[in-house]
Design a protein around this nucleic acid. Structure first.
Lengths: 182, 182, 182, 182
DNA sequence: CTATAAACGAGACGGTACGTCGTGTCTTAGG
DNA sequence: CCTAAGACACGACGTACCGTCTCGTTTATAG
């Protein structure tokens, strides 16, 4: 879709708060009215772009025998966005938009965060069930911590690198006591 | 300072991206040029407001005998911002600004995040030294996780409540093995 | 047209150099952009006002048997502007604008001066042909003199009164020698 | 005087209505307050510049035996300003200022116009007395016509050239009837 | 040969206006 | 019928000047 592409490229090059319907319309070769007809606000437009566009590299979590390796790999994949200046600009813009706009925040929660959390939580639960993680692991909280760190690194411009992810995994996913005995 | 006050109140009522020099100037009873003379951008203005204004309720971490209680109390104090709609609007606006503006992000890192991290890290290190926390605790990473969760709750509009903080503390600040033996 | 009316009234009350697009727009209930869209400069706006508005009381020259009476009447009619403070303010503003702006000067020449000159010249030529004025009368020069005196009186704030017009007519429109003989 | 020079050069390059105290002060290397201390308005400044600066090339009228040649020469000298773009810009700016500002108009009348009129009128009266011009010549009116034509040519951007001056002189300064009889 | 005062340059200040850009609504042609 | 094109009233942008107002800093007497 020309409009969503134009939106993405404007977002990447100009950022959220100088994003303009006028320029998007011009870039997409479309009348402004067409934009307003379908998306009442900039937030709605970005919303749809995020949803439709597969912007986030939030793939499924791999399932090998080793849950810590799986989670590490998944986090590092997400962290790779940091290396693509275009993608991280879009991200930062999306975060800015989400921080300001409660509706967009809710939408984003539904369509993106929830998906990511579900995938990660599922993998963790599976590991708990398999005895690879402690049975009293707060899966929901741990899941949020992983995503919060993604957000944190994005907003504070820190790389989500090997060392950090390793530390996180070590801290958040302890070896169960039973495991030691076995 | 009338200007910074006006900035704060505009930020609370209108948000970051509709923040306007024109309105701040009018509200502060000041010419626009005076604003532009001292703060070249909205970000600089918000920067100074944050720095000068004691916006963040990031007080020192209490030192009682119980590090977990201290950290819990500190996190809950920060989380209380959620209850003040004005303050949390300012916060969200600041996050939006920081997400968009790399310079502002750096400034904020220096002046706010670093202070909070130092305070928290110091308390944790002290507990580690006292043997109340495992000696291999990744103090720096754990500290970042706590702050990341503050950001996360702010951006995703989740309350930073007792249950969540308790889970976090349990997960991040384990009892040292020596402790169990004792 | 509301815009041209607003222009005229602003011109009358504030004069040329404090004339402001901002105030005209406000007075006309119009956005500034609309003004700029159609008139790139204040001069263009005044230009059109002058052209479209029938500002100048430069009517046709009457044709009775007596050319001197006709010209006298015409000059006095023009001179009557002096009595209307509003109209003479507009005039002085127009003169100021014309003195400063070569483009406006050219436009004014085309649309106003030329018309007035043509009317006056036609009447004079007719009188020359009829033998009421000398055949060697420099019609073009004499015409310019009459208009120049209008300008002169306007700029120097002198009334264009009966006595002056009478003297002018006597000087510029001599009785032909043949006429005396006849 | 640096200030008056700066005024003249600003007037030549920018015209009357964009003339700015700020720029004059900067150009003259002077504080704004110094300007305001001595000249309350732009008009006062231009006033003094005109008075002090010998702006107008209104020299004395030569007295040879031939009054028509003398007046012609004088008019052409004035007309020569047209050839100097700088000088004519200053002139046009002064006319614009005078057209707008009644006080400046009065000042200009006293200090410049009156002088020119007196010189010209004196020469004409002398010629009348000598019988070279008709005794019923309206000296005052004729004088005004000559000056009005200078203004006219300036404002309408017409050259005050040989042909026009010759026509004017022929028309305005007729040979006395006695002269014909002689 | 200092004191004192004036005029000075510099430039901040609360304002008005500039000319431009973008908003969201509306109207007009054309495929 | 929906579209692109774009006019419109409006609000904000960042800049230029306005005229007023401190600031030190020369000068230039008057004690």
């Amino acid at each position: 879709m020309a409009i969503l592409d134009a939106t993405r490229s404007e977002l990447a090059s100009r950022g959220w708060d100088t994003l303009s319907f006028e320029r998007i319309a011009a870039a997409a070769g479309v009348g402004k009215q067409t934009l307003y007809r379908w998306w009442p606000t900039k937030a709605a437009l970005v919303s749809e772009m995020v949803t439709a566009g597969g912007i986030l590299p939030v793939g499924p979590v791999a399932v090998t025998g080793d849950v810590r390796a799986d989670v590490t790999a998944w986090m590092l994949a997400v962290g790779r966005v940091h290396d693509d200046p275009d993608a991280s600009a879009v991200f930062q813009a999306v975060v800015a938009a989400v921080a300001e706009d409660a509706d967009l925040s809710a939408h984003y929660d539904d369509r993106v965060t929830t998906v990511a959390r579900a995938r990660l939580a599922e993998r963790l639960q599976q590991a708990v069930d398999a005895g690879a993680l402690p049975s009293d692991l707060r899966v929901d909280t741990v899941t949020q911590v992983f995503l919060a760190m993604v957000l944190w690194c994005l907003v504070t411009r820190r790389p989500l690198d090997d060392a950090l992810v390793a530390d996180l995994v070590t801290t958040m996913l302890p070896v169960p006591l039973r495991g030691r005995r076995a």
